[in-house]
Amino acid sequence: MSPSPASLNDQQRAAYIREQVMAHGNALRQRYPILQHQDALGAGILAFALLGMIGSAALYIGGHLPWWACLLLNAFFASLTHELEHDLIHSMYFRKQPLPHNLMLALVWLARPSTINPWVRRHLHLNHHKVSGSEADMEERAITNGEPWGIARLLMVGDNMMSSFIRWLRAKTPEHRRLILTRTLKVYAPLGLLNWATWYLFLGFHLLDWASAALGAPIAWSATTLSVMQVVNVAVVVLVGPNVLRTFCLHFVSSNMHYYGDVEPGNVIQQTQVLNPWWLWPLQAFCFNFGSSHAIHHFVVKEPFYVRQLTVPFAHRVMREMGVRFNDFGTFARANRWTRAAQAREERTQAA
């Protein structure tokens, strides 16, 4: 029988959730011994994802798969590699074997060139767990957590370079602008810079080509330009485009399931919610059910993503009993604050 949540503070509730979910994960490993082969499973899932991306790309290039199917398939496969990178950041695969561990990190980065260097992200993500919900949580802040909803956030949430650019525009001093610029170049070099340059080249070329034709003055592109754009078009369909889609889905879900600003330091109950309404499933499909499963990770950090997915029904029941929020859509209006500003002021007044 579970304890009454009313008799527990948030730290005790979090500890109870952690204990129950860890026990359930251990029971799953006993029931399904294959789950105990963590390194092999991680490597196998990576091989599956990479072969899936390569296979769908080959089918598209060979004319056997439409562009949209290739893009959607590769966005899904890339979402698997994101989960693997996250597990690798927490040293869940080949922890004491640097060569395969770092090889996996390199491969998941190649599959998702839109992202920052994973060795850099490790520091940002571990810091995220320490300071989640605060201004110091650079990882979540970078993907728009805590931003009021509007045109700026919409542009930033799916485009990492646009996010950096808008923050650069907002910077109040030349020193801050230089810091944003140098940090962006450092963490995205070289794959991220190449990825986003390819994306902007694709958008710019096709926008200019369409606009000139619409105005009755089509541009006579050179054979060299058209040859280059043929390569760019293929790259966008098989790799760049899938990661733009995956980035938008992941960042939209993640930035809105994490709370920001008025979170009590270290209070895991207040750090996240479970965000899994039916209408988010098109996005969840390309971030591997992140909105439903990621909150579990804040309670049980050292659980690989596939075990976490298996624990979802049990974990959700325990989390709901202990007061974790589910589908708090008010977060969109509150810029991801735990409480409304007026409510927070009232609570502070009462406390005083």
Rank of each mutant, 00 (worst) to 15 (best):
S2P: 11
Q11W: 10
Q11I: 03
A14M: 01
V21E: 03
A23Y: 04
N26C: 12
P33T: 02
L35A: 06
Q36G: 13
A40M: 14
L46K: 04
L46C: 07
F48C: 10
G52W: 10
A57T: 05
Y60D: 04
I61K: 07
G62L: 00
H64Y: 13
L72N: 03
D87A: 08
D87R: 05
D87I: 00
M92Q: 14
Q97D: 07
W109L: 07
V120R: 10
R122G: 01
H123S: 14
N127V: 11
H129S: 12
H129V: 03
E135F: 15
E135D: 14
A136Y: 04
E139I: 12
E140D: 15
R141P: 00
N145V: 05
E147F: 12
I151H: 10
R153T: 15
G158C: 10
G158S: 08
D159C: 00
D159S: 00
S164T: 01
L169E: 11
K172Y: 03
T173L: 11
T173N: 08
Y188N: 11
Y188A: 06
N195H: 14
T198G: 08
Y200M: 03
H206I: 09
A213V: 02
A214C: 12
A220W: 08
L226M: 14
S227D: 11
V228D: 01
V232C: 04
V236H: 04
L239G: 10
V240G: 00
N243F: 01
V244E: 02
L245R: 00
V253G: 11
S255E: 13
Y259N: 14
E264W: 05
E264I: 12
G266S: 12
N267M: 06
N267I: 02
I269C: 09
T272M: 10
W278H: 13
W278I: 14
W281F: 14
P282C: 13
L283F: 15
A285C: 14
S292V: 11
S293V: 10
A295W: 04
V300C: 12
P304Y: 08
V318M: 02
E321A: 15
V324T: 12
V324M: 13
F329W: 08
T331W: 02
N336W: 07
A342H: 05
A352I: 07
